[in-house]
Amino acid sequence: MSDKKDKIISIGDIALMIGVIAFCVAGIILLVSNSKPGGNVTVTVDGEAIESFPLNKDTEYSVNTDNGMNIIVIKDGVVSVSNADCPDKICVQHPPIDSEGETIICLPHKLVIEIVE
């Protein structure tokens, strides 16, 4: 078959790749350099703030939502999710968070754990 050989990759594509990646890397660098250590962590379910904890006190808290359960652990100033009964366990695999604005999200439970001032 005499198809005209369509180019698979062009200079435009590479420029696009570099552009998008540069934009994202710049954004991340900006975010990281501006990040302040947070003081508190808020737990939000379905858009409603239900609980807030100081980061400097180690505690363990179990969130029971209509959709399921997550166990939030605050230890040494960092917050993580130690266990959950959601199917994907993305919140459990998420690395611990400690800077202002960082979040751990459990989509199936509509849960947002966010570090605030």
């Binding site: 990646i21 994202c24 858009g47 947002v112 966010e114």
Partner: peptide
């Protein structure tokens, strides 16, 4: 769904992975 705009920051990471 989550009523939280801060999630949009994830775009910075997803933009890199999505491009690759």
């Amino acid at each position: 769904v989550l009523e939280n705009v801060n999630i949009m920051y994830y775009f910075l990471v997803l933009g890199i992975s999505g491009t690759i």
